[in-house]
């Protein structure tokens, strides 16, 4: 196998691992607040997922550059928590302003979710995972894309199930968050089936 193919394989493994095997919501428990909050209807769930994926990719790019061109040369990697959270918070603001000015339809579709993303652990999570795994720039971007798409997938599946659950005869005590968490258990078990694929 030549070098290029091996590199490609590596990227596919990272993508599948982030999207399915180590799914952000079901396995790493990251991003549970939006998972419980906006997974009641399919439309908003998908918009939220896409917004998160988008921010994850941009944040991974920005934090990778900062890590490699500022933190490592100055030997101040221990500052990463402060730097990363500030970068993400300001990025979200910039993206929000940019979308508001350029594409008002897109803004009304997922603009309201953007402020919530700042404190979404999945975004900070992916940047820390990239840093701890010493991923290259390309690997970081693939990891962010995989993580984001996996997040969107689970959010969408969950929203589909919860739309039906609303109509089901759930015991009163289990309505709302408890039954959503039980559903997540079953989804998580189903996702265990992906463990063997790489």
């Amino acid at each position: 196998m030549d070098g290029g193919a091996q590199e490609m394989n590596e990227l596919i493994v990272i993508f599948l691992s982030m999207a399915l095997i180590n799914n952000f919501i079901l396995v790493r428990y990251l991003g549970l607040c939006p998972f419980l909050g906006v997974s009641k209807e399919l439309g908003p769930a998908v918009s939220m997922g896409i917004a998160v994926t988008f921010v994850m990719i941009i944040a991974s790019l920005a934090t990778w550059l900062i890590n490699h061109y500022i933190l490592i040369p100055f030997d101040i990697q221990y500052m990463y928590i402060i730097v990363f959270i500030l970068v993400i918070a300001s990025l979200v603001q910039v993206i929000e302003l940019f979308i508001k000015k350029t594409n008002i339809a897109l803004y009304s579709a997922f603009g309201i979710y953007l402020p919530l993303i700042t404190t979404n652990c999945a975004v900070l999570g992916v940047t820390i995972i990239n840093m701890m795994g010493s991923y290259t720039l390309l690997e970081s971007l693939v990891a962010a894309l995989g993580g984001g798409l996996g997040f969107t997938l689970v959010l969408a599946i969950m929203a589909g199930i919860r739309e039906k659950l609303e109509l089901a005869d759930t015991p009163r005590a289990m309505k709302g968050a408890p039954i959503a968490l039980i559903t997540a258990t079953l989804l998580g078990l189903a996702f265990f089936g992906f463990v063997g694929i790489v």
Binding site: A173, M174, A177, P178, L181, I182, A184, L186, G188
Partner: peptide, 21 residues
């Protein structure tokens, strides 16, 4: 299964249901 990720969802889901009930 209880120390695997889905077990966490199961335990907290049942606990919340129990408290509510």
């Amino acid at each position: 299964i209880f120390i695997l990720p889905p077990g966490g969802f199961l335990v907290i889901g049942l606990l919340l249901g129990l408290f509510k009930w």
